[in-house]
Design a protein around this nucleic acid. Structure first.
Lengths: 242, 242
DNA sequence: AAGTGGTCTAGACCACGTG
DNA sequence: ACGTGGTCTAGACCACTTT
């Protein structure tokens, strides 16, 4: 089927992929150790790790630091343009969400935030840092920067649930305009550590900038996701006629 | 500054990154060869390649098959929700676009297309396969599936420019609803080969499903991008008040 | 023909997670 | 204490690109 000169690591990748698809079912299943795979396929760990890196890049397996390689769960479908919270997405798709608020404080708007938000530099801004889980796997860290003008006292609320729900129900705020930025990157020190992956692991960055109907800055949200944890689904334009 | 036990490949990554940022500006600049870097930093090619892979994952350098490593150009900003063609995006941002139509034909809708589009299985569909460049670098391959009901004769037109412009100007078609799907993946055989990268290179997948105001399927677009070539920017909701 | 990245071997020691 | 992945060495040959 495949040419005889196919590199060993690609053959191994394909055999592992087939094995995962055939044998296996449940996510979070652990693969044999690298040494065992090397022995079983009569090659070295370097080559085994090339094959594993391919499957990792494709989002089929992920590594848990010095514990082993595991089969990746299904991607979470996620629409960053909608006013629906993370917890509800996860629950609707049959998983168990969890959110940890890592820190929340009032800061002075740094220059970069001023540039994108229109706030004056040094103006007070709520900063909230959260880590979110699907089942037991940490899949994203999130930095929220919020204009306190319209939601004074927000930091006293419970921020482990949806901030948008707080906006809506507690403060009567309704973002009218949003700009999304999405691109892939390598996760750096703080985010990688918070997600329990190594520096340079593949990630997906989502930034959401929200204003109200008067054009006043409401919130900037910067999310760092594991690259294999989500599939973005966005609906734009008029809804279809019934 | 950094702890003395920082791995060699991370030190090397940081030194290379600093060197790229300081010394160098122009994209497409070639790095020293792996062997030369190994010698200069008194280490081995394996370690050098770990450092290079980190910079590649971060989108700062890319490899050209057996020619060397090069500094990545700036990301193209791209809004897949707007009726603006690729060529115009590229031109507006100061680059030179190029599009090659690799194939175009009339096919029968396969089962998977029927499932997402609502077309009957086996119904006639135009299929267009294109490769697109920013300057001299191939950055994406694109599969278009188009409902011929409203644009008969499309395959006789020049498809190296914008298909949406053809929809609008030649056929009077205006997509009213679109669903976008975006996620990262590893590029597989046909797409990787078409882009001149190796199997398993990191990519970004964008799918765009368009209907007209009656809910009739117009077009399905599946784009496979090099992961470092673009930054998605989407505006949703009401535009800001002036 | 020379140089490059692509692939691969056969080891080694270390840091960390788990029993 | 043991097994795991994380890091690293010092080579080798090959396929391909460029000169």
């Amino acid at each position: 089927m495949s040419r005889p000169d196919t590199p060993v690591y690609l053959q191994l990748r394909d055999r592992l992929r087939a094995w995962i698809e055939a044998e296996n079912l449940s996510s979070q299943h652990r693969l044999p150790s690298e040494r065992e795979l090397a022995q079983r396929f009569n090659t070295t760990r370097v080559t085994v790790r090339q094959a594993l890196a391919q499957l990792e890049a494709d989002g089929r397996i992920f590594r848990s630091n010095r514990r082993g390689w595991y089969v990746t769960p299904e991607r979470l479908r996620y629409d960053p343009s909608r006013d629906v919270g993370f917890n509800q997405y996860v629950t609707d798709q049959g998983y168990t969400p969890r959110t940890e608020t890592l820190s929340k404080q009032l800061i002075e708007a740094p220059a970069w935030l001023s540039a994108v938000s229109g706030l004056e530099q040094g103006a007070p801004v709520y900063q909230i840092l959260r880590r979110r889980y699907v089942d037991t796997r940490a899949v994203l860290v999130e930095h929220n920067y919020i204009n306190p003008a319209h939601c004074s006292g927000l930091l006293s609320e419970n921020t482990d649930a949806s901030i948008w729900a707080l906006f809506r129900d507690r403060f009567g705020l309704h973002p009218q305009h949003r700009q999304l930025e999405i691109y892939s990157l390598a996760l750096k020190q703080p985010e990688a550590d918070a997600l329990g992956v190594s520096h340079g692991a593949a990630g997906l960055y989502i930034q959401r900038l929200s204003h109200d109907q008067q054009g006043t800055f409401l919130e900037l949200d910067r999310e760092y996701w594991l690259h294999d944890a989500l599939k973005i689904v966005v609906n734009v334009g008029e809804p279809m006629a019934p």
